[in-house]
């Protein structure tokens, strides 16, 4: 290494040290670290400090507020989900029947799980018509709008097993009915637990959902040939 090369190396090192020391070092603020059992809540990051003299400081670009959602159209399946918009409602009545005798059950108490509404069945096994919400699963709304909302009810009657009935299909502007089957307790029933019945999704929607995400490399049975 010649003397000229040594001078160039020394100059480069000095320049590097000077630029490193001149670089603004952000102040390290003590932030509580969330961890298991720490018992502390993670804080939101503090807003950037605004200088006192606004005239000298450049204007800070604040994030713009999100635009308000357009007014929802009641009954539209394409309406974006918002927890602050009341659910549309439709009429629903429940028919309770004895699962073994196939006869309507009078005096059964039916509770609509989502709203805690209660109704009692009459001599024909039907409750009165009630306003019930149409609740679609928000997970699927941006993808493929469900064809119907879903609700759940529980039916109680002394001497019978409780019946939980989930997935009742609800449609906008259309009254809906559902049938709950109850089973009488007998001497052999030692462990008495509720009976569950799940109404399946409408299969027309399932066909649409599967087609929505199908890739060309996985055609399954191939394009539907009618």
């Amino acid at each position: 290494m010649t003397i000229r090369h040594r001078w160039i190396l020394a100059l480069t090192l000095c320049t590097g040290i000077a630029s490193w020391t001149a670089w603004p070092v952000p102040a390290v603020t003590a932030q509580p670290l969330p961890g298991p059992g720490s018992g502390q809540v993670q804080q939101a990051p503090a807003a950037p400090a605004v200088p006192e003299s606004d005239s000298a400081a450049p204007e800070i670009q604040r994030p713009s507020m999100p635009a308000p959602l357009p007014p929802p159209t009641p009954g539209s399946a394409e309406t974006p989900f918002s927890p602050y918009v009341p659910w549309p409602t439709s009429k629903l009545r429940v028919r309770v029947m004895d699962g073994r005798t196939q006869q309507p059950l009078q005096g059964a108490e039916v509770v609509l799980i989502e709203t805690e509404q209660r109704a009692t069945t009459g001599p024909d096994g039907y409750t009165q018509w009630m306003d019930a919400p149409i609740i679609r699963n928000p997970r699927y709304r941006p993808l493929v709008a469900e064809l119907h909302g879903q609700l759940g009810v529980i039916a109680y009657k002394n001497g019978y097993r409780d019946s939980i009935h989930l997935g009742i299909r609800m449609h906008e502007g259309v009254p809906s009915e559902t049938t709950v089957w109850m089973y009488k307790l007998g001497p052999g029933d030692t462990r008495v637990e509720p009976v569950l019945y799940q109404v399946p999704y409408h299969h027309v929607w399932l066909v649409e959902l599967a087609d929505r995400f199908r890739s060309k490399t996985q055609p399954g049975e191939g394009p539907e040939r009618p």
Partner: peptide, 8 residues
């Protein structure tokens, strides 16, 4: 019918 077509 309600299981093949959609009531609404």
């Amino acid at each position: 019918l309600p299981n093949e077509w959609v009531p609404s």
